[in-house]
């Protein structure tokens, strides 16, 4: 029988949302329109319209060693062109952000190729070739994985994911990269490392509380779905915990 991934345990809505995000055959809902130039501005790695700087000559121009793996794996566009490796980093608020660091890494590993994600408690970074990065970033920003108020694109000084929200509902950002305007639209006024942009980049309105609670992938005992309510999830985590603890003693089930 062919292997069919289950993506994750759980019977709760949160578990279902997690599986939906991870499953590459499920299309993520598009929430906003952001242009390619906007993405380049927020990332801040190159000027919009500039050529991609390279780390090595294009693969077609250089002699490749005779390697069976290279014959199996098709290089991504960025690798083919010899682009530099660049990054995008997100911070997700604990107050019902649509995604969170571990979830992002799982989702990206299932959906994208040629990436190197780094997962931390409050932030998640993904590195890849610049051309691929811009393509992937566009998907990460435009779809339901991002909320304009509770997700921050932050290359440095990410502090804020576990803090109270501001009065207007925005996640705390020491550098205030994104600002909620009078018209209710969030605009990035600085790039991800905190350098002011020449023009503000609009990324749409923050999603409402009801939508966030229905689409969040975060268990939360205050106002959300408590982790303890999902018995299947608990059972799975306890099983993994028990097996890895007993591993040195050669567990037999």
């Amino acid at each position: 029988m062919a292997y069919k991934p289950q993506y994750g345990p759980g019977t709760s809505k949160v578990a279902e949302n997690r599986r939906k995000q991870m499953n590459p055959s499920q299309k993520l809902e598009k929430m906003r329109d952001v242009t390619d130039e906007d993405i380049v501005l927020i990332l801040g790695h190159r000027a919009p319209g500039a050529a991609y700087p390279t780390a090595h000559p294009p693969l077609a121009e250089q002699q490749e060693p005779d390697c069976p793996i290279r014959k199996i794996v098709t290089p991504t566009d960025g690798a083919k062109a010899g682009d530099r490796v660049r990054y995008i980093q997100f911070a997700d608020s604990m107050f019902f952000a649509p995604c969170h660091p571990y979830q992002r890494t799982y989702t990206e590993c299932y959906r994208f190729r040629g990436i190197d994600p780094g997962t931390l408690s409050g932030r998640q970074i993904v590195e890849c070739r610049e051309r691929d990065l811009e393509k992937y970033s566009k998907e990460l920003v435009e779809t339901e994985l991002l909320d304009a108020a509770r997700t921050g694109i932050r290359g440095a000084t990410v502090h804020g994911h576990s803090l109270r929200l501001a009065e207007n509902g925005m996640m705390f950002d020491m550098l205030q990269r994104s600002v909620l305007g009078e018209d209710g639209i969030v605009r990035y006024v600085k790039n991800q490392i905190g350098e002011p942009l020449d023009r503000a980049v609009a990324i749409g309105k923050p999603l409402d509380e009801k939508w966030l609670k229905a689409h969040t992938t975060i268990f939360h005992s205050l106002g959300g779905t408590p982790y303890r309510d999902d018995a299947e999830y608990i059972e799975y985590v306890q099983r993994i915990h028990s097996l890895r603890t007993k591993y040195g003693f050669m567990p037999k089930e």
Binding site: G155, A156, T157, H159, G160, L163, F172, M174, L175, Q176, I193, G194, E195
Partner: peptide
């Protein structure tokens, strides 16, 4: 949480 006058760390 502190709001510094200059960017405290990172490339900027």
């Amino acid at each position: 949480p502190s709001i510094p006058a200059t960017v405290p760390y990172g490339p900027a």
